[in-house]
């Protein structure tokens, strides 16, 4: 596959995130990859230790990714679920299995640069075996027009002694109507770190993200951080759930949201539940503006309040 086989607008669309999709095209870099434009598979590259298959369906694809037992990948697996047209309904069914003792980083890019009434649905299943180190990063760009209607649902099972890090970024462009639901099940001694970042920028944007972590195995630990900003009529709801259902499990939910301009709405709903007397779960939430001291420290460098706020938003929504 050459660069020109993949729509230029998708290739360029993640520049604001400092991501160049060209780096992930087949023939570039050593990682496995699968690139999609609506329901057309534009490129697949397999590497040893991975089975990567996509099957086109009328509105999208079914994609299977299997990381074979013991495989440790240095290069990330790249999944690009792009749509270069303005409208339509794209449906993606990814099934990702990381077998025992694997180490892998998956970078998924959902890019709809010309979206104008586009609908993107995803129904994903992740199975992460024992003793794995699995890092999943999903970056979205829904263009600058009306955004898209995006409704992904994900179920993630994290096996014993595994580490699962989830990073979701929707901070550039106009999101549109976004409703995301994630359920993560953490087994014995597993560690979950889930970081969600979103930015609603105008009245067309309504972002609702529900991320639930169920600590089902003893000593399972989790930190769920949800960070968001809403401006100029944008609306964001962060619903972070953690349940402690096993002895000595420990979970924490943190929601931080900044609201800017009249008509913008930020809502945070950290929800914690414990069913085991030896479990420990906690939460914290903050909404509103940045602390005046933070603004003062930046303004003392010669920036005005608006510029200082921009810098703090950029920092807050930056991937760690």
């Amino acid at each position: 596959m050459t660069d020109s086989d993949y729509p230029e607008e998708i290739l360029q669309s993640l520049e604001d995130y400092n991501i160049d999709i060209r780096d992930f095209l087949p023939g570039h870099g050593g990682g496995a990859k699968l690139l999609l434009d609506f329901n057309k598979i534009k490129g697949v590259e397999q590497i040893e230790g991975i089975i990567l298959k996509g099957r086109e369906i009328p509105n999208g694809i079914v994609a299977d990714v299997v990381i074979k037992e013991g495989t440790k990948l240095e290069e990330p697996v790249h999944l690009c679920f792009g749509v270069s047209k303005e409208t339509g309904i794209q449906e993606i069914f990814p099934r990702i299995i990381a077998e025992d003792n694997t180490e892998v980083k998956v970078q998924a890019h959902c890019s709809f640069p010309k979206a104008n009434g586009l609908i993107h649905k995803m129904f994903g299943h992740f199975y992460i075996g024992k003793n794995c180190n699995f890092n999943y990063s999903e970056t979205h760009y829904h263009g600058e027009n009306s955004g898209a209607l995006v409704a992904p649902v994900g179920y993630m099972y994290v096996g014993e002694n595994s580490v699962f890090e989830n990073n979701f970024n929707l901070t550039k462009g106009t999101p549109g109507k976004v409703k995301i639901m994630l359920d993560i099940y953490a087994m014995e001694n597993s560690v979950i770190r889930s970081n969600i970042r979103a930015f609603g920028k105008n009245i067309k944007d309504s972002v609702r993200i529900r991320d639930a972590i169920y600590l089902e195995g003893k000593n399972a630990r989790s930190v769920l951080k949800m960070k968001a900003a809403a401006r100029d009529g944008g609306e964001v709801l962060m619903y972070g759930i953690t349940e402690g259902n096993a002895p000595n499990c420990n979970g924490h939910v943190e929601c931080s949201e900044i609201v800017l301009g009249k008509g913008s709405i930020c809502r945070a709903r950290p929800f914690i539940r414990a069913t085991d007397p030896m479990s420990s779960v906690s939460h914290e939430a903050s909404l509103g503006r940045f602390p005046q001291k933070w603004l003062d420290e930046i303004m003392a460098k010669g920036l005005n309040e608006e510029e200082a706020t921009e810098i703090l938003i950029e920092a807050m929504l930056r991937e760690e």
Partner: peptide, 18 residues
């Protein structure tokens, strides 16, 4: 600040991501 003065705080803030 633009005139050429600034202040270094006693306990500067900790800001994630900056």
């Amino acid at each position: 600040a633009k005139l050429g003065m600034t202040l270094a705080w006693q306990e500067p803030a900790r800001i994630d991501g900056l």
